[in-house]
Write a protein that binds this DNA or RNA. Structure first.
Lengths: 335, 335
DNA sequence: TCCTACGGAGAAACCGGTTGCTCATGCGAC
DNA sequence: GTCGCATGAGCAACCGGTTTCTCCGTAGGA
């Protein structure tokens, strides 16, 4: 920025024969400048191709007009959509999003969050997988902050979550209706709160459906994890599989195809999230639709309230989104 | 940053009974500070939970330790891998990546590039689709900059490109070998340079293979584009389709499945890029493998040279990567 | 005609760091 | 006993903006 020949406000001021204060006022459209003077300043600024230094402006104003977004894995289309939603909304308010993912070093997620926050005015923490004690610390150190896809009881941080308990129950209901009596859940990362919620929902559901056997298997959250789970899946005796998310379902479908297993003929597979690819998979993937972009959008909107100080409401929002079952062709009646 | 109660260097200095200069030296591990004093400063800093303001530091140093990466569409896994590669490499050097995509407003790509550059020390411009005249301008206004996936003859900007001409020829060869005599290319965005390269390669190839009919159809670069192209594809009489990229191939496969068309029995489909999903598609997708993460990594490495001024080499690098044919099950002999 | 109010522009302080320069102190060498 | 030099720390300028406060000139009202 400095070693460049980029013109500074001082240079513009000099050439326009005014003070830096005046240039600043003109650049920010303050009305208190004589139109004729303003015109001259603008002309000089245009000629020099001047544009104010972001960094200097940030320092002076005490804000960067940027908010951070930390997700576990940018490679997951689900999080991309959250990003997209937040991005669109933030841009409209003149803010930019700084993205980071913790996939390289999941164990340093807390550090990353704090580091990201220090470059920004606020933070969106999406699906954090850190232990609760750390999370408390991080939320304390990063506000204003909004929590997405995880809850923390007792914190007064705006929170957006998906009702995974209901969601997983809906999938199980669907499979039950189709006639399945042996289900298998491919679990996500142990640290994932949404995985815990799914497990809880499943446990609940099973209590009400004693006639059904529900197993689960540790698996993961990525395509490869699903791919590698095939043997265990086939060995389990289940007639239907609920994958932690669509990525896992994808990996599973791919390997099942290689192994010559018919879906849904021999095995039904359901995912979670409804990423764009789900619809275009073969067979198209039955899944729970999560309003991904909406999560991002709402996250920004809550953050915006906090930033503009309108967020004086005593009770902070905790907003629930209910996922919707999307039945496609990867699930069917057991043979 | 300021409205927060975040401690400043002045506060640390006051409590440690030293000057701000000394605190700064301690924080940056300059050796010229008495160990005992340094220890006291560190102790105070730790107690106050002090950490230097990024923004102030950036202003003072004239660099932000951040490089921008602009891609057309973050939703495309291909670009995510580029991002990942760049991210990993940059992090090792203490730099961070600021990502942006131009998908919301493709026509403002040039602006976005310049805007992104102004927040960073350098820029990676990936697959820019702006007109050549604009590109010249942008390259001039954003250096140090590295160009990925597009060439600009006459510019002395480090460039990383994929040999799409060779790539598309390899796909065509593959299909020819399988016995296809009517090929259809689903073209990407007209503005895309890599699309132009593919077209050129195809034209070249056809000249050498007069016995084959090669059509093309304007399509696009996203899943939906492939999905919507199905009718045109089926009406074309082609027995094999080369999609602009894997996303398009995906959309096409999905809709073909819905329409009950057997792949590769009735129609062969090939993609380009070899995104992670390609392998797990059903049928798994024949495609050209592009070293996506490697592109990102190399981009950073060139940028790093420019930034550290070692890049005094007279002739700037233009590095070519040759994609590799990955034969999977979406292509086969025509019936 | 004088006083006041107001619009417009500049001086200077400030944001929170970094660093060149200066200066005090203490040590060794002559 | 001086001188010289090395070491270590502070002063102050600087990065490039924003904003408060002050001051000047003019116009309007009494």
């Amino acid at each position: 920025m400095s070693s460049d020949g980029a013109p500074t406000i001082a240079e513009v001021a000099r050439q326009a024969g005014v003070s830096r204060a005046t240039v600043s006022r003109v650049m920010n459209d303050r009305a208190t400048v004589d139109p004729q003077l303003a015109a001259r300043v603008r002309e000089v600024a245009a000629r020099l191709n001047y544009s104010p230094s972001r960094v200097a402006r940030s320092l002076s104003l005490g804000r960067t007009q940027t908010v951070g977004l930390l997700v576990p894995d940018l490679g997951n289309p689900m999080f991309q959509q959250v990003l997209r939603g937040a991005n669109q909304a933030a841009r409209r308010s003149g803010y930019r999003i700084l993205v980071a993912d913790s996939i390289e070093e999941p164990q340093r997620e807390a550090e990353l969050a704090i580091e990201a926050r220090r470059r920004c005015d606020a933070l969106i923490l999406c699906s954090p997988r850190m232990p609760e004690a750390e999370l408390v610390q991080v939320l304390g150190a990063t506000r204003p902050v909004v929590l997405v896809n995880r809850e923390l009881t007792g914190s007064n941080v705006p929170t957006l979550t998906v009702d995974y308990v209901h969601g997983i129950r809906a999938v199980a209901d669907h499979l039950l209706e189709l006639g399945h009596r042996r289900l298998l859940y491919l679990a996500g990362p142990a640290e994932s709160a949404s995985n815990a919620a799914r497990l809880a929902g499943l446990r609940q559901w099973q209590a009400e459906h004693q006639e059904v056997v529900v197993d689960h298997l540790p698996c993961g959250s990525m395509i490869d994890d699903g791919y590698r789970a095939v043997d265990a899946v086939l060995g389990s005796g289940a007639t239907a599989v609920i994958a932690f998310n669509d990525l896992v379902a994808f990996g599973l479908l791919g390997k099942l195809d290689e192994a010559g297993v018919m879906v849904p003929g021999e095995l039904s597979v359901a995912g979670f999230d409804d990423i764009d690819f789900a619809r275009y998979a073969r067979p198209s993937l039955t899944t729970m639709s999560v309003p991904q972009a909406e999560l991002g959008l709402q996250a920004w909107s809550h953050l915006h309230e906090l930033l503009t100080g309108q967020g004086e409401r005593a009770a902070p929002h905790t907003q629930y989104f209910r996922p919707r079952l999307i039945v496609r062709t990867s699930t069917g009646s057991p043979s």
